[in-house]
Simulated assay, not measured.
Amino acid sequence: MKIAISGGTGFVGKHLTDYFLKQNHDVYILTRSEKTSSKKNLHYIKWLTDQAKPATHLEGVDVVINLAGKSINDRWTDEAKRQIIQSRIEATKAMYSIVSSLERKPSVFINASAIGIYGTSKDQVFTERSTEHGSDFLAETVDVWEKEAKNIQKLGVRTAFTRFGIVLGEEGALPKMLLPYKLFAGGKLGSGTQWMSWIHIDDLVRMIDHVIKTPSLSGPVNVTAPNPVQMNEFGKTIAKTINRPHWLPAPSFAIKAILGEMSILLLEGQKVLPEKAVETSFTFTFPHLQPALEDIVKS
């Protein structure tokens, strides 16, 4: 297959690229900068610049995956929030322009999204059938993002919104979560009862491939493990995995003082289940947290 990926040089993008290259697919990474590749099946295509004409290189593309967007892991100033939203809208509009100009449309468009769209709750369980959306910044960002991506669906292209949970791997959120424990300072964050819906990076990559290969999958697809945990349990599991104590609590007021509005990422959560993946017989390599953490820590 011929697979185009925007945001392909990020954490998730690099894992997807490696996975598809190992399967001998041709991978086209959309990037703002000039890059060359020594791998015959890996190609870099300029986009989002005045002189770029990415569509000329992507005729005949089978799959388009949109991961592009500014990281949400920086402090949420007004300017950062504007960039978080604008970068996603800009990239998705550019994707629409590319796909609309192709003579032969791809079989599927996969737009990275997030479970943050559901809002936060300590007692609700969310699946792809959940229609309620949150009102916080993350929920509003994802809602705007998905609405923009729905325009590609109007071109007759099967479109999936892969709503990522917290992605566990050697990069991303996990190293920051491990650090206090490595320093013997790990413990409960806030109330500890907030839900954490997570996914091992390997299962995320395989689930993207599953969406590609499963024509019945479209619309929202929750990319989470089937066994979410509460934050206190998550911390205890980290401590057990790396043989460190779980003892020093971090109160909510202190986290809010340090992180501001961004503290919602640690202090609030949602219990999200991957109903569509289960219904279409996706098999998780890491359905439970401790084996997932052990695999990442030892690798």
Rank of each mutant, 00 (worst) to 15 (best):
S6Y: 01
F11S: 08
V27L: 08
Y28K: 09
Y28F: 15
S33A: 13
S33P: 01
K35N: 11
S38F: 03
K40M: 09
K40T: 14
H43G: 05
H43T: 09
Y44W: 09
T49V: 11
Q51I: 10
I65A: 07
N73F: 13
N73W: 01
R75L: 15
T77N: 05
A80N: 13
Q83E: 15
I85H: 12
I89T: 12
I89Q: 11
T92A: 11
A94M: 03
A94H: 11
M95K: 03
S107F: 11
F109H: 02
S113K: 03
S113R: 05
T120P: 02
F126V: 07
F126S: 07
E128D: 09
S130Q: 06
E132C: 06
H133R: 14
F137H: 06
L138Q: 14
T141L: 11
T141K: 01
V142F: 09
A149V: 02
I152E: 04
Q153L: 11
F161D: 07
T162C: 15
G165L: 07
E170R: 14
K176E: 01
P180E: 08
Y181G: 00
K182E: 09
A185N: 05
G187S: 08
K188I: 03
K188R: 15
I199H: 05
D202S: 10
L204S: 08
V205M: 02
V211P: 13
V211W: 12
K213S: 14
T214V: 03
T214L: 06
S218L: 05
V221M: 06
T224R: 07
P226R: 08
T237H: 01
K240S: 14
P245C: 12
H246N: 10
H246R: 02
P249Y: 06
A250T: 12
S252R: 11
E261S: 11
L265N: 05
Q270I: 01
Q270L: 01
V278E: 13
F282P: 07
P287M: 11
P291S: 06
P291A: 04
P291M: 03
I296M: 09
S299E: 14
